[in-house]
Simulated scan of single mutants.
Amino acid sequence: MRSEVRWRLCWENELHLADHVELSDFFRKTYGPTGAFNGKLFEGGRSWARARPEFRAIGYDSRGVAAHMGLLRRFIKVGEVDLLVAELGLYGVRPDLEGLGISHSFRVVYPVLQQLGVPFAFGTVRHALRNHVERFCRDGLATMVSGVRVRSTHPDVYLDLPPTRVEDVLVVVMPIARPMNEWPTGTIIDRNGPEL
């Protein structure tokens, strides 16, 4: 049985305080089980973790927020190539809906990406989500790029940490205005900012 989900596509400045509070609660419940610190990022009505999205796709059902994906346009550097992308992140599905196929509803973001005119959408996920991401890639909507590490800045300055971190994560690329064979090669992607 699938949950009936309606989607709200909105720019960040269209959200009200009540929206942030509701999303904050959703993220604490969704990310909290993956590690105590992950849930803490969303305390106090904060509805973003590191970089703040500029656009959101929010799925609602009769119980409230059911799913979420954020989007932020930015330039990244893949190897030696500067590249405009729409970074996708802040992905979440309410735990009681996992496995019901709701993640495929994120296709609602695709027309927005086309309107923005970005050549590619780009995102990263933990290796634990590999099986989930492979489902997206089977139908050709996205491609997992292997052998690439991602360098990001910390969202804040910490005196006991270097300003950047390099992660071994799964890189997912969606061709939007350019074909996948035009994605640059390289073994490191520089976000030049914090992850979404």
Rank of each mutant, 00 (worst) to 15 (best):
R138P: 09
R130P: 06
H16Q: 14
F75S: 13
L113M: 11
V5P: 03
S47D: 13
K40D: 13
S3E: 14
M69D: 00
H20W: 15
E43V: 10
Y31I: 00
V65R: 01
N13L: 12
G79Y: 07
A86D: 06
R56I: 08
T30W: 04
R126G: 07
I188N: 08
P111W: 00
G89L: 04
R151E: 13
A66S: 03
A67N: 01
L9M: 07
R130M: 15
L196N: 00
V118N: 07
A36L: 15
V157W: 00
P184M: 04
S3G: 14
W183I: 03
E43T: 12
L100K: 14
V118R: 06
A51F: 00
L170Y: 05
R73I: 05
F136I: 13
I176V: 15
D168V: 01
P111V: 00
V172F: 02
L71N: 08
T185C: 09
L159V: 13
V166T: 11
G117Q: 05
V85M: 07
G193L: 02
E167T: 10
V157G: 00
H104D: 10
I188F: 06
L41K: 09
E98N: 09
T124W: 00
R107Q: 11
F136H: 15
R8I: 12
V118S: 08
P111H: 00
K40H: 12
V21N: 05
A57W: 05
H16R: 15
L129E: 06
F106V: 02
K40Y: 12
H132V: 12
L17C: 12
L100D: 13
V166E: 10
R135E: 14
I189Q: 00
F106W: 07
I102Q: 04
S146P: 07
I188M: 13
M180G: 01
I102F: 03
P175Q: 06
F136L: 15
R130S: 14
E80F: 09
L71D: 04
Y60W: 10
G35L: 09
R52T: 07
G89P: 05
R52N: 05
F75C: 11
L170C: 09
S47K: 07
R107Y: 10
R191E: 12
L84D: 12
K29W: 07
V93S: 05
T30G: 01
R28D: 01
I188H: 08
P179G: 03
S47V: 07
P162W: 03
E22G: 06
V118E: 08
P155G: 02
D82R: 15
V150C: 03
F26M: 05
D139G: 12
Y158H: 06
R56L: 15
V173Y: 00
F122E: 02
G147E: 02
V65E: 01
E12G: 02
G193E: 01
L141G: 12
G147Y: 02
R52C: 06
I188E: 14
S24Q: 03
R130H: 14
S146L: 09
V85E: 09
L159C: 11
E87V: 10
F37D: 15
L141S: 15
